[in-house]
Each structure stands twice: as structure tokens, then as C-alpha cells.
């Protein structure tokens, strides 16, 4: 277990370094200055701004100094939202995205697994066909179509739910459904495929021969094994959902992290981009670690130190 965790930590550092380097270099090499505004700044002021934000000197010194600061836990100041630190911006927006993301994640995993396993158990019945049709339809309707359509129907026509904003639990509902839609479909399809394979396995015959109830055979023995590939999809999905989605945030006007990913690039806000990418990567690796741990629990034959 310990060597496994150590190896994972080492690979996390490697991935973080690569990803930070890639985003920093690409954004610094892009044409355009982080301080470009409608009115051109006098060169002296621009020079001072560059100095204040540690963006002068050769690209190599900028890069190494930035890495050093990140290692010390300093994510620096945002160049767009002047005088506010990246840490502060993240602390404000992450809770919103995390709440929305975890709601969507719970919705997607429970509905998806239920839909997929039911379809597999009722294989070759109209229920199976319609569940898979529904899943494919959900995949083919992207979030930026589903979001406005849901607003049009439930907020503008029926007036049941708020159009957007972040003030009541009800305002969480539409964005969470929008965000969860494609994920439900993907999870349902994965679960069904994997469950169909598992249902052929001999160990289920053993379980039935032991006299276990059909419910226990299907939902404990079969589903537990069938969930393995689903779990490895859920890891990256959680990281993605928790860090927010720019589309959902812009449609429903939410103050989340997702919009930073794109806006930081558009504003050449190197450190803000570095911050959100860092959060995303750490979450991604952490979730993958959880996936591996869940694997050993779901299938005791799997050993992590192997």
C-alpha cells in the first residue's frame, strides 16, 4: 500500500509539472499582453506592472520563479482581477462549483447506474431498448442545447423554477440536471455493457446455487463486479464536474470556477489559469487514486502493490 501511494505521489508531481509548464509556456508565448486595455498604457507603467507581477526578464526566469512560488504555496496575484490573489478567487468560486458539481455527480451516478443495470437485467425487452435510446439521445443533446431549452420550458413557459442565479436550492436544480444529462447517458451505457458481460459469469450461477435471493445475486454480486469499468469513468468525471462548467455557469449566470478556465486565457491571466489547472489536475489525480482504492474494495483479487 505505502509504495503504491508513494509512486502515485511521484506521478502526481510529474503530471502537475508537465501541465503547469505546458499552460504557462503556451499562454506566455501567445500574442497579447495581460495588461492590454482599450487605451494603450505608457511603456513606463507597463514596465512597472510587469515587474509587480513578476513577468519581466527571460521566459526561463519567469517560469522558474513562478514554479518556486507555487512550490511555496503562493499562487500569486491575478493580472486581470487586480490585487486579488488567485487563492482568494478560487476560495470564492470553488464552493459554488463544488456544490453544483457534486449534486450533478450524485444525480448522474445514481440515475446512470440504475438505468444501465435495469436495462441489462431486462436485456432484449422494450425497457432495455428505450433506456438505451434515451441514453443516446441524452449524449446527442449537448449541455448548451439542453440548458437553454430547460430554461425555456421550466422557467419561462411554466415559471416553476428560477431562470438563473445562486440564491435558493431551487436555482440549483436546472443547472445540475443540465450538467448531469450527458454523464447519466455515458454511465448508463457503460453499466449496461459491463453488466451484460458479468451476467454471463459462472460465479453468479454459484451464487444462485447457494440459494441467494435473485435480488441479492443481481444487485450485490453482479452489480459490484460490473461497476469496475464504471468506477474508472466516474473518477475523471468527478474532477470535471467539481471544477465547474463554463457553459452551465454562463447559461445560468453562476459565480463558479468554470468560467475562469476560458476567461483566464482570453485575458492572458497566466497565474489564474495556472491556479485552476492546478486544482483540476490535483482533483483528477486524487479521484483516480480513489478509483484504484475502490477497485480493491469491489474486487478483492486486485492488489495495488502488484
Amino acid at each position: 500500500m505505502l509504495p503504491f501511494l508513494a509512486r502515485r505521489l511521484a506521478s502526481l508531481c510529474g503530471v502537475l509539472l508537465c501541465v503547469l509548464t505546458l499552460t504557462f509556456l503556451l499562454l506566455r508565448l501567445s500574442p497579447g499582453s495581460p495588461f492590454a486595455r482599450e487605451r494603450k498604457l505608457p511603456p513606463v507603467i507597463e514596465q512597472q506592472l510587469l515587474a509587480k507581477y513578476h513577468l519581466e526578464g527571460s521566459l526561463w526566469t519567469q517560469y522558474t520563479e513562478y514554479l518556486g512560488d507555487v512550490l511555496h504555496g503562493d499562487l500569486r496575484l491575478s493580472t486581470k482581477y487586480r490585487d486579488r490573489s488567485v487563492r482568494e478567487l478560487l476560495a470564492q468560486s470553488l464552493p459554488v462549483s463544488a456544490l453544483l458539481g457534486s449534486t450533478a455527480f450524485l444525480l448522474a451516478s445514481t440515475l446512470g447506474i440504475w438505468l444501465g443495470s435495469t436495462a441489462a437485467i431486462r436485456h432484449h425487452t422494450p425497457l432495455d431498448t428505450s433506456a438505451m435510446l434515451l441514453a443516446l439521445a441524452l449524449i446527442s443533446v449537448p449541455t448548451f442545447v439542453a440548458g437553454p431549452l430547460l430554461v425555456l420550458i421550466f422557467s419561462l413557459s411554466l415559471g416553476w423554477l428560477p431562470v438563473g442565479g445562486w440564491n435558493s436550492p431551487a436555482s440549483l436544480l436546472l443547472p445540475a440536471i443540465t450538467l448531469a444529462g450527458p454523464a447519466i447517458a455515458a454511465i448508463a451505457r457503460l453499466t449496461r455493457t459491463s453488466m451484460l458481460e458479468t451476467l454471463q459469469a459462472p460465479f453468479l450461477r454459484t451464487a444462485r446455487a447457494k440459494g441467494l435471493s435473485e435480488c441479492r445475486v443481481l444487485y450485490v454480486h453482479a452489480l459490484k463486479t460490473a461497476l469496475l469499468p464504471v468506477i474508472s469513468y466516474l473518477g475523471p468525471l468527478a474532477a470535471q464536474l467539481l471544477t465547474g462548467s463554463i457553459v452551465v455557469e454562463s447559461i445560468f449566470n453562476l459565480p463558479g470556477t468554470g468560467s475562469f478556465f476560458i476567461n483566464a486565457i482570453l485575458n492572458r491571466d497566466v497565474f489564474l489559469l495556472g491556479g485552476v489547472v492546478l486544482v483540476y489536475c490535483v482533483l483528477l489525480v486524487a479521484m483516480n487514486l480513489l478509483v484504484d482504492l475502490a477497485y480493491t474494495w469491489l474486487d478483492p483479487r486486485i492488489r495495488l502493490d502488484a
Binding site: V19, L22, L26, L29, F261
Partner: peptide, 21 residues
């Protein structure tokens, strides 16, 4: 693996910036 870890839209947008001019 590394390319999987970078949010891919970031790469696309940055590639656009670099190559467009």
C-alpha cells in the same frame, strides 16, 4: 496521459492564439 490531464479546450484555444496570426 499528460494531454489527457490538461483540459483540452485550453489547448485548442491556445493553439488558435499561437497559430492565427
Amino acid at each position: 496521459d499528460v494531454l489527457y490531464a490538461v483540459p483540452r479546450l485550453i489547448l485548442i484555444i491556445l493553439a488558435g492564439f499561437l497559430a492565427d496570426p
